[in-house]
Amino acid sequence: MPSENLAITWRRIPERYRLAGSYCENCKTSYFPNRKLCPKCRRKGRLASKQFSGRGRIYSFTEVSAGPAGFELETPYLLAIVELEEGPRLTAQIVGATEKDAKIGDEVEMVFRRIMEDSPEGLIHYGYKFRLAKRCAPK
């Protein structure tokens, strides 16, 4: 069973693969995910596409010990709210670390990983996750 409509998956590839978001040239605000309308400026907003750096900090995190179907092999895993250095926050997995390794405020960097597979014969969904940045990588 596909997890979502193929057209939606396809449209979200730039945002999921490389953190392509948007930026309002009027109020200088960055948005992720993509926006078609600036909620601050409304009709005065001028939205352009923006490539995020992939660097950020852990704003908040939790260890998920009972993951949803399809995540059995990865459980337990860290799920975090990451604040990108450009401002927006997003939810993502933190890989290669346990609850003991990570703390709020730690620098993280985007990595490209498999998110899920629809079925053994189905599409593989790839996208962003994060890991602790080089300088605070666990021993």
Binding site: E74, V95, G96, V111, F112, R113, I115, I124, Y126
Partner: peptide, 16 residues
């Protein structure tokens, strides 16, 4: 490799 790594994800990281 981690459970979410494959030849494509390693290729992307090396390419970046």
């Amino acid at each position: 490799p981690d459970v979410d790594e494959d030849a494509a994800t390693l290729a992307v990281e090396a390419a970046r």
